[in-house]
Design a protein around this nucleic acid. Sequence first.
RNA 1: GCUCAUGUAGCUCAGUCGGUAGAGCGCAUCCUUGGUAAGGAUGAGGUCAACGGUUCAAAUCCGUUCAUGAGCUCCA
Length: 642
Amino acid sequence: MSDIKVSINNGESTILPAGSLAKTAVAELLSNKQRKRTVAVFINGEVVDLCTPLTEDSVLTPIQTGSAEALSVLRHSTAHIMAEAVRDVFGTEVKVAIGPSIEDGFYYDFDRKEPFTPEDFEKIEARMTEIIRKAVPFTRSKVSSESAIERFSAEGEKYKVELIKDLGVPTVSLYEQGSFSDLCRGPHLPDTSFVKAFKLLRVAGAYWRGDEKNDMLQRIYGTAFFDKKALKKHLNALEEAKKRDHRKLGKELELFTIQDEIGPGLIMWQPKGALLRKLIEDYWKDAHYQNDYELLYTPHIARQDLWKTSGHLDFYGENMYSSMDIDDVQYQLKPMNCPFHIGIYNSRRWSYREMPIRWCELGTVYRYERAGALHGLLRVRGFTQDDAHIFCMPEQLEDEIFNILDLNLQILKTFGFDKYEIYLSTRPDKYVGSDEHWEQSTEALKLALEKKGLAYTIDPGEGVFYGPKIDIKIKDMLGRSWQCSTIQVDFNLPERFEMTYTGKDNQDHQPIMIHRALMGSLERFIGVLIEHYAGVFPLWFAPVQARILNITDSQIDYCNEIYAAFRKAGIRIEKDLRNEKLNYKIREAQMAKIPYMLIIGDKEKDSHTVTLRLRNGDNIADMSIDDFIEKIKQECEDGKNS
RNA sequence: GCUCAUGUAGCUCAGUCGGUAGAGCGCAUCCUUGGUAAGGAUGAGGUCAACGGUUCAAAUCCGUUCAUGAGCUCCA
């Protein structure tokens, strides 16, 4: 057998007999410490495990603890360990499906009649710990698909059999650790002892291959790390997310309520939430006015014929509520605002000189969502879109997209979102409009993104049937992504509604239509905002900006007097003049996350000032009423323009 | 819609083996007038999600429905 040259990162190299394992090379080329951190290697850009035989000259790049790839390998292996443990505890009648690593951990799907319970988790975890302690090696073997099918059939592992059959390849790889053998592409850890910290988190139903026509399996989710500290940090982050849950904060801060009597997925805004929403809406309207948009209002229902013309009944009918009869004519609740804006467009003739036309509306729409999909403010059945439609000539498309992106990012930034992922979705298999149109507009979207200097990812074939689109996913304080903004080009509706404008040539031309929503829906956006800020809203859109706290009854008159003055000045202020101790009032104001507490005692009353306490516990020396009004106004301006 | 879990006072939750309900917070009244995260006392408040069944007896056991949660799926 000939020798081969193996090097690490093109650095140190060694000569080994062909067929040596990657492990051997790593052992020879890395220090003991480095070796212990190595869980797999890249060879030619591919992640493989350490028991891979090397057959030719190779350059290895070690994958070491601390990297995302290593974590993914770890979690994948932990999923296998969990599967082994489940079968050890509950027997081989439990069938296994798939068990990949996912963003924050891993899962494994099991087919078992009885549901897994929290007590079962303890048993599984205990068994996993035993397996990990034994440092069982993961070994890989290549077998013919035929023999693998034979073997898994004999074991009754029908899901594995189905997977292999669908792969349609001559050989497959199996991974084995201890008593457990699994169809798997790998790679895996050298042995189970690399798993230093793990936890099973929850169990939920999941269809085999995500198809509801298939069997319902039980999916156990868990997570794993290379050290206990990281696991603890992750669990703390989950706790933190729980604390920020907008449903919990929404209740505590009295922002909104959802009630059985009213119906699921229908939001009622309580006074504080309504005020919060008004502030956001006002800002949004001002920003649009400043950017040359005009505001529209349109009805909530329309004749069914409209929805036939628009194509919504054909393409979106499943999400629309059934019709109602008004004087023998059928009407339907709107799931979208676009046909109404088109109606306004078609109410008169337009000249090319008037293009582009930019119309916006905070339009409330109703869409049917499956019961299991509803979630607080984030997924509801009635919501208000921050909608806009731009009608323009083809040559204006790029500029318009650029302007939309500009306004879009400005608004997101004002609300504290300056990290995002941008996706450009191109033509799907089923589409309307000419290829030329598609190419031109996709190009216009690209150019606008590039001109704005934005990095984006292309989602091939993910466009809507009527045109290409740009989606923006914002990242919140905890690093979670939320899809809010969407910008869609539409060749379909202008055609269906026979929209025209008179060109320079005195001929009719068809405008291009752009749909766009920046926040997506107010409900959803506010839900995200609550979690992003953990309810501690910036002063400019905090529903309550200040609360007056008196020390004794002797300041009540003065408190009422300044309360009136602040309200008149447009400060959102409350007063707490109850017969309670100051400590008690401060505690309540603090928990209500009110930005400023105005402490009023005899001192302030006599000097005609207020003493400020901030919600972070800091104190600001007393200042005059006018100075305080000025301060709040200035801070709000700064907040809005940040 | 599907799987599993949950549903008790305005809120957060106890409630054992089936014997018709309990705490803390909040709320009301009274005492207390207290300068930076909970002063004290008394009191009101519940068809135990709804409907049906088993039982001498159901918050508790069974069934159905509704809602909520974790997911699957879908999407703003």
